[in-house]
């Protein structure tokens, strides 16, 4: 348990827990929007990891972790827009956003 005392381990554990929460949400909930929320949480947890490694890594001036996080934020925004657009399109088609009920491959 020596690892617990370092700040990096704390951040990594929080990120791991948040990732698990997001994964659980994506797997457990019925609504497609909630699944997207879960995915967003997972992406955010990854960002926290990147920033934590940047901060406590040996070369913070190289900015690698920070850049990864910034790009990841931008990509996540695109992902949310497309994902929610798809949810809305599916809702319009099937009149439901519940994933259990969307089980046909024919329109």
């Amino acid at each position: 348990m020596t690892g617990m005392s370092t700040p990096l381990a704390g951040y990594l554990l929080v990120a791991a827990l948040l990732f698990a929460i997001g994964l659980g949400g994506a797997l457990v909930r019925r609504n497609a929007i909630l699944v997207l929320i879960g995915i967003e949480l997972m992406l955010n947890a990854a960002n926290l990891n990147l920033i934590a490694f940047w901060r406590y890594g040996p070369h913070p001036e190289a900015l690698t972790g920070m850049m990864f996080a910034i790009f990841s934020i931008a990509v996540a925004a695109a992902e949310a827009a497309v994902g929610l657009g798809l949810v809305i399109a599916i809702y319009r088609h099937t009149n439901t956003a519940e994933l259990d009920k969307i089980d046909r491959m024919k329109g």
Binding site: A20, G24, A26, L27, V28, R30, N31, L34, L99
Partner: peptide, 14 residues
């Protein structure tokens, strides 16, 4: 609000 396979999802997340 939870899917039928919620237990499996929980186990995977854990």
């Amino acid at each position: 609000v939870f899917s039928h396979t919620w237990f499996l999802g929980l186990v995977i997340a854990a």
